[in-house]
Simulated assay, not measured.
Amino acid sequence: MAAGIRDVAAAASVSVGTVSNVLNAPHKVAPATVERVHAAIDRLGFVRNDAARQLRAQRSRCVALIVLDIGNPFFTDVARGAERRASELDLTVLFGTSDDDAARERSYLDAFDEQRVFGLLVSPVSEDLSRMITLHARGTPVVLVDRDAAGTPFSSVAVDDVAGGRLAAEHLCSTGRRRLAFVGGPRTLRQVRDRLQGAQSAVAECAGASLEVIDTDELSVLAGRSAGEGLQARAPEERPDAVFCANDLLAIGVLQALTLMGDVHVPRDIALIGYDDIDFARSAVVPLSSIRQPSTQLGTAAIDLLAAVSEGAEPQRIVYQPELVVRASTTVP
């Protein structure tokens, strides 16, 4: 008969509760007692040897990936890249979506900490990384995804979003557009702020150009549709002649409002460009120009960075350069 937790407790001369604490919260138990309980576990074969090693290391073979919105195809591709690379390293990826909610993000961090995950891949909601810093200090490897880790103790893999925003605005200006609008939000997200900053810098260097900022509460199709309806309702002379959206989901929503619910022609009346280059961008009713990110590669690189950190490597920051993809939404025949 296999040994049970009561057998371990008897062999180590401790209570069943103490054995439970050693397995689940060893920081609550005196080091000498932890050693005695683990010796009894090994002697009795209470768990498989591999599992016992994991318990002693307080680490599983699961990696936690927390993204802003798993419903966004960009993050789906990031997750796919992470999952494929993790399987090659005998790791399993657990997913969580914060929905741009700091409290929800913290709840996931706490839950995955209780599971003693191998490490954390996180696309942060805000600048407050204190909970992740605490976990890092306690020995849980953390890698930031789609966010540069400058000024933090973490490794990171990201895209230069300032450069991406500049690319988008420069392209619109190069087609002769001068009344530009930026649609995106919330601005608590670093990605949104950086893309806006890049666009602003490009517009400042374009003679006669201006940039209106239209804030949204989220990076979704519905938020884009609402912004588009607002533009469609304006008099033609009061509308921008080009719109740069902080992601493709917003751009698709804007496109729906302008072309399917109104009489605005894209790109003749308003040129439109998005960000991420998700699959839906090329198949939209008017194929969308976009700023491409290497989404699957971000996930693959994040797992590699996590594996390196777990082996004691110094933090690394990988920053990819974005790519302009021109389609019909910004090109007048």
Rank of each mutant, 00 (worst) to 15 (best):
P153K: 00
V325C: 11
V309S: 11
E88C: 11
T97K: 01
F75Y: 12
L109A: 15
G184I: 00
V122W: 11
V332I: 15
D113W: 06
L167W: 07
G45F: 02
G185E: 05
V125N: 06
V183H: 02
T33V: 12
T300A: 13
F118K: 00
P315M: 10
E35H: 09
L196N: 05
R239V: 08
Q200F: 14
I70R: 08
R282F: 11
Q54L: 09
L167R: 00
L306K: 02
V159L: 07
D277W: 04
D241H: 14
S174Q: 09
I303E: 10
P153W: 08
S329V: 05
A52I: 01
A103L: 10
E311L: 12
R239I: 08
S329R: 03
M1W: 10
L180K: 01
A150M: 10
R193T: 13
V143L: 08
V264W: 02
Q232V: 07
V122F: 11
L324M: 01
T76E: 07
H265Q: 15
A64P: 09
D7G: 07
E212C: 00
A271D: 10
E314S: 14
G164L: 04
L305P: 00
G262F: 03
S226G: 07
A209Y: 09
R193G: 12
A281L: 05
A2Y: 13
V16W: 13
L288R: 09
Q115N: 13
A39G: 15
D50W: 09
Y108K: 00
N247H: 04
S210T: 07
R80A: 14
A251W: 13
S156R: 00
F244G: 02
G45A: 08
G198W: 06
F112M: 03
Q191Y: 11
A235F: 06
A246S: 08
D113R: 09
L189K: 00
H265M: 15
G45Y: 04
L121V: 12
L121R: 00
G176H: 04
L23T: 03
F95K: 04
R190A: 13
H265N: 14
V67C: 09
I5P: 03
G17Q: 11
L55E: 10
A137N: 14
M1R: 09
V22T: 10
G71T: 15
R178E: 09
R36A: 14
V67E: 01
A52T: 08
A32V: 02
V19G: 08
C206Y: 03
S156W: 00
L89S: 09
R317K: 06
N247W: 03
P294I: 12
P315E: 12
I270G: 01
P322G: 12
L94V: 06
L89F: 10
L222K: 01
I273W: 13
D248R: 05
